[in-house]
């Protein structure tokens, strides 16, 4: 995994929102990479910057948000400084996107067949007849019954779960090498969720597609991801193999987050909770952003901001794992 050249590389990404009251830093010094065929899960509370990271990668940051520093490389080529037209060609062809709400992703005025064939004829060297044939194949592949008939249906004629399958087919049909999936199963019921996750996983494995999976659902991450990045207040708090982060987190925040998940296999009198709330972007504490809530806080945490450092099984942005002894 580590010896394969990364497909996606994000280096020291910083996203800012200029406002009347000063500049808000939504993402700060975010770095990670995804290898071909790898699934990177990105978790964290709302406002931690998970969706923002995905939006920055596909070049759809909402103005006035902008990339202030750092770079994003796809296959070794920078994509963060491309013009709108150039980026538009990369989206769809190189990077597919799946969003939370399938109804807003699909155009209600076109049949799903039209949307699929349009995507394919735009990005692949094929004629419309071939595109239609492949569109039916894709619909079958994502598990839509009677695909040859349903292809001429409009999005509203599908149920929520079926619609999300169409969105997945749409994201995959131009055979992108990277998929950015932002909460792809959150709007779905558990039984449908399981079907969609199984589908995404198989397709990613079979086609060797890399995936960045943004979600707040730790169960989905545990089932799907190879590695996980935990975000807090616009930075990566911890990143590492899924089993290590979910079961033996090193960063006190990731540990607290995992502990607060209600267990399914037993009843506990009181759930573990992290007191307080994640700070707003306008009031991020000095030093480590987590220090006011951290049970293991010590003097250094309030003064200096930790970068990701080696924490054995994972990399964690936490002074507990500083190799040199702090002076004083």
């Amino acid at each position: 995994m580590s010896n394969a050249a990364p497909l996606l590389e994000v280096r020291n990404l910083r996203v800012e929102f200029p406002t009347r009251r000063g500049t808000l830093v939504a993402l700060d010094d975010v770095s990670f990479s995804i290898a071909p065929g790898e699934v990177l899960g990105v978790v964290g509370e709302s406002g931690a910057g998970k969706s923002m990271t995905g939006a920055a990668i596909i070049g759809l940051l909402e103005p006035p948000g902008r990339i202030a520093r750092g770079e994003i490389l796809l296959n070794g080529k920078r994509i963060d400084n491309l013009r709108y037209e150039q980026m538009r060609r990369i989206r769809g062809k190189e990077i597919g996107a799946i969003f939370q709400d399938p109804l807003t992703t699909l155009n209600p005025l076109y049949t799903v067949g039209q949307q699929l064939t349009e995507t394919m004829t735009t990005h692949l060297p094929i004629n419309p007849a071939e595109a239609r044939r492949r569109a039916i194949e894709w619909l079958e592949l994502v598990g839509i019954p009677a695909a040859a008939q349903r292809i001429d249906s409009y999005p509203h004629e599908f149920s929520g779960g079926m619609r999300q399958r169409v969105v997945i087919a749409l994201a995959l049909c131009a055979e992108p090498r990277l998929i950015v999936a932002d909460e792809p199963t959150t709007a779905l019921d558990v039984s449908i969720q399981a079907q969609v996750i199984a589908l995404l996983k198989t397709l990613a494995r079979e086609k060797g597609t890399a995936m960045m999976l943004v979600t707040h659902d730790m169960g989905v991450i545990a089932e799907t991801a190879d590695r996980v990045a935990v975000m807090y207040a616009g930075r990566i708090a911890e990143i590492g193999p899924v089993r290590e982060v979910v079961k033996h987190a090193n960063h006190p925040y990731s540990a607290g987050l995992m502990a607060s998940i209600p267990p399914l296999d037993r009843r506990v009198e009181r759930l573990a909770q992290i007191d307080g709330a994640m700070p707003r972007l306008s009031a991020i504490p000095r030093g480590c952003a987590y220090n006011p809530r951290c049970p293991k806080v010590f003097s250094r945490c309030a003064d200096e901001r930790p970068d990701l450092m080696d924490a054995g099984t994972t990399r964690a942005a936490c002074w507990l794992y500083a190799s040199e002894v702090p002076h004083g």
Binding site: V190, S191, A194, A222, E223, V242, V246
Partner: peptide
Amino acid sequence: EAIPDLDM
């Protein structure tokens, strides 16, 4: 059965 397995 449909609930994802956190224990992996």
